[in-house]
Amino acid sequence: MSETLYTPLPNRAVIRVSGADRIDFLQGLVSNNVEKISAEHSGYGALLTPQGKFLFDFFMYQQDDNSLLIDCEGGERAENLFKKLRMYKLRAKVELTNISAEYDVFAVFGDNAVASLALPQQAGATAPFGNGIKTVDPRLAAMGARVLVPHGEEPALAGIGASQSTPDAYHALRVRLGLPNGSEELEVDKAILLENGFEELNGVDFKKGCYMGQELTARTKYRGLVRKRLLPIEIDGPTPEIGSVIMNEDREAGTIKSIHGTAGLAMIRLERIADGGALQAGDATITVNVPDWVQLPATE
């Protein structure tokens, strides 16, 4: 993919968190270290249940000296996140505002995406972009960059030498790289962060101190409890349905979570790919690809 492309991500929302207690407020809730968010560095993290199960994932940016921006799933998911944050606000000096109507979220991707924005090839590296923000994808620099601009400032993206693309092209690259897209692949109230790559994708800080759901996340890591992982798949043959079971001969090897073209993401039982054998989902042959950023545990 030599051409630099950009696309709007219409299914995103933006929530502003402002006020004197904004850092401490989010720090006690989010899986990553909010204190590291600055004008030069953005982050990725998740809000979990008290039992450590996935609720929401999002990107975090510093808007100014008094405000952070949360780039999250849109629609009802954004409304539910806003309500959840408001529920935990209590007496904290924090103001929450859904400013989705004011901002647009774009992805810039392709081999020269980061260079076209004059950013270093470092996940989370951030700088101003006109009246908005540009950042190397905080999960993985190979995904390119994200740009938040006030509504109506999209023409500025053409000035970086990028061609307009589509969300479908962005998601096809995303699944081939193995990156989850919130509730599209992560089951709400059930998914576990470390099975979905959050440690390697800079979504968890194990040194930051307490946050909601920390105990299960830490126990999963230090007791080596990861036995399955969300991994990219290639599909050869009739496209199976999302949710289809992947079989290794007569044994269940995983479940398809999403499909974009001939690629997708599936939750794979690691022992089923370690012992070889052809994988099938219906009449389709499934090939599991392990990205170089994924660190798989040793299997017995």
Rank of each mutant, 00 (worst) to 15 (best):
P8Q: 13
P240N: 09
L179V: 14
G52I: 04
A156L: 15
L119P: 01
M87H: 10
K208C: 03
D111C: 05
R174I: 00
D236H: 14
L270D: 06
V136I: 01
R272P: 00
D283K: 15
D24V: 11
L201H: 05
R272C: 13
G52M: 09
G224Y: 07
A274G: 08
A46I: 02
L29C: 07
L85W: 06
P128N: 12
N196P: 02
L26Q: 08
P167V: 07
F129R: 07
E73S: 12
K257T: 03
V114Q: 06
L29P: 02
R272Q: 15
V149K: 04
L69R: 07
I133D: 03
E215N: 08
Q214F: 05
R139T: 02
F56T: 00
D205Y: 06
L230A: 11
I286H: 07
I256G: 09
L193M: 13
M143Q: 14
T7P: 03
R176Y: 03
F59Q: 08
Q164N: 10
N202M: 11
E199D: 15
P150E: 08
F198S: 08
L119S: 05
S18T: 01
A92M: 06
L193P: 02
S42R: 09
D292P: 11
G45P: 02
K228S: 12
V114D: 02
R219P: 02
A107P: 00
N202I: 02
Y222M: 10
G43A: 15
L201P: 01
K53E: 02
K190F: 13
L96P: 00
S116D: 03
S38T: 13
A141M: 12
S116G: 14
A172L: 13
R146T: 10
A218P: 00
E184K: 15
V290Y: 07
I99R: 13
E187S: 14
A46T: 04
G178T: 01
A125H: 10
E95Y: 03
A172I: 11
M60G: 04
E300I: 11
S38I: 02
G178K: 09
A169T: 10
M60W: 09
A107I: 00
Y44K: 05
A78T: 00
